[in-house]
Structures are given as structure tokens and as C-alpha cells.
């Protein structure tokens, strides 16, 4: 937050005589004090939305993009990459996105407890337990499938679960950006699944990853409007 044009404003607010028990000079000063203090607090407690959306968008764009280039429809790879590379890159980037989200959230909300913290915690459990239970079933089926169908099954299920949980998150926090992103992910997952093996990762990379980047920019814009004093 430091270095932003807002920081001068914040400094002005905190330099008010702190031991002063006297009332604000007039009604206008009182209103300014309220607005400045509320927006400064919101800025400090609300992490930059881009840091929550963009790392996942990049992971999908690059990870699924590489997967499409290596395993496109048909037998001919579009790029000569080692077969292990796309999934490795995808999982490394997803792990990095998760770590970024954890650090950013703890910094912002770490010292706040109560209903919000409980919501976040339960939502996290839904992701963890939901993923484990779904993938355990998939693992037992996919070994009996040909490579392209197994890949489609895994990615369509993972993307579908992500879409559903984003919608659920939107419902929990009444966050329309999050909810709309969930709807978008679910719809493009459907389109990718209909398009079939080979095409699904392309749809997820471009429309899914791109959608997350757009959603992050929109969420950031809304956040800035909300934090205007």
C-alpha cells in the first residue's frame, strides 16, 4: 500500500493529535475523519484482489496451455516438450498460487477473528475435503481409461469442482465477482467437455485462465471504488 497516492491521505489521518479528547472542529471535519478512517482500515484489511485471482489465472493459462500444445487432438504434438512437463508446470504454478493466497490472506485477515474467519476456514475445508473425495474416486477409474479420456476426466472434474466452489464462495460472501467467475468456469468446462479430449485444455487455458485474469481486474476495480473515502 505504501507508495500509492492514498498513503499521503492515510498519513494525514493518523497525524491527528492522538491524545486529543476534544470533539472534531465541525461536522464537515467529523465526516471527513469518519470516511478517511473507514477507507484506510478497509484498504489495510482487504487484500489486493489481483493477488487472489491472477496467480490462479496464470497457472491455468500456462499449465493447461502447455498441456494442449503437448497433447492436442490427434497424434501430433504442436510443441516438442517432454511428456511430464505440462502437468509438472501446472502443479507447481497451482502450488505457488495457493501459497500466495495463503500469505496474502494471513497478512490481511490474520489479526481478525470471528464470523469472517470461520467462513474462510469452513470454505477451505470444503476445498480440501471435496478435492480429496472426488479425486480418490477418479484415481480408481482413470487407470482403466485410454490416456486422452483419462486426461479429460481429470481436468473436467477438477475444473467443474472449481467452478462449483467459486459459486458457493460467491454465495457465502455475497461476492458477485466470485459467483460470476464460478458460473463462467462451469459453462466453459461444459463447452470444453463437449468439444472433447484434446480441446478441453485449450478452452480451460484461454477462456478459464483468461476469465480469472479479467475477474481479478474487475474485482480490483470494484474494490477501489469501495475504498474511495
Amino acid at each position: 500500500m505504501t507508495g500509492s497516492p492514498d498513503s499521503t491521505l492515510f498519513r494525514k489521518v493518523v497525524c491527528v493529535d492522538l491524545d486529543d479528547d476534544s470533539p472534531p472542529t465541525d461536522a464537515a471535519a467529523a465526516l471527513r475523519l469518519i470516511q478517511d478512517q473507514r477507507s484506510a482500515t478497509a484498504r489495510r484489511l482487504d487484500p489486493d484482489a489481483r493477488l487472489l485471482y491472477w496467480p490462479w489465472g496464470v497457472a491455468w493459462l500456462v499449465g493447461f496451455g502447455l498441456f494442449f500444445l503437448r497433447f492436442p487432438p490427434g497424434d501430433q504434438a504442436l510443441a516438442h516438450l517432454p511428456g511430464w512437463l505440462p502437468l509438472t508446470v501446472l502443479f507447481v504454478l497451482l502450488a505457488a498460487a495457493g501459497a500466495t493466497q495463503a500469505v496474502v490472506s494471513v497478512r490481511a485477515y490474520g489479526q481478525v477473528t470471528g464470523d469472517s474467519a470461520r467462513r474462510g476456514q469452513w470454505y477451505g475445508y470444503a476445498w480440501a475435503l471435496g478435492s480429496v473425495s472426488v479425486y480418490a474416486g477418479l484415481g480408481r477409474i482413470s487407470e482403466h481409461l485410454p490416456h486422452d479420456l483419462a486426461a479429460l476426466l481429470w481436468s473436467a472434474t477438477a475444473v467443474g469442482l472449481t467452478g462449483a466452489l467459486h459459486m458457493a464462495g460467491g454465495a457465502v460472501w455475497l461476492d458477485q465477482d466470485l459467483f460470476r467467475l464460478g458460473v463462467w468456469i462451469s459453462v466453459i468446462n461444459l463447452i470444453g467437455a463437449i468439444a472433447g479430449p484434446g480441446w478441453h485444455p485449450l478452452v480451460v487455458a484461454v477462456a478459464g485462465g483468461g476469465g480469472m485474469l479479467v475477474a481479478g481486474a474487475l474485482a480490483r476495480r470494484r474494490q477501489r471504488q469501495r475504498q474511495q473515502p
Partner: peptide, 22 residues
């Protein structure tokens, strides 16, 4: 209606209902 307490209350009002801050 005192500057310092108004700042405290304004800050706390920016938390979600049901939340507390350290």
C-alpha cells in the same frame, strides 16, 4: 463525539459484523 474515539469507532465499523480485531 471526540476525535480519538471517533477514529476508533470508525475503524471498528469497517470490520464485518461479528468480527473482532486483535
Amino acid at each position: 463525539h471526540a476525535q480519538a474515539r471517533l477514529r476508533v469507532v470508525a475503524s471498528l465499523s469497517a470490520l464485518n459484523v461479528g468480527d473482532k480485531i486483535a
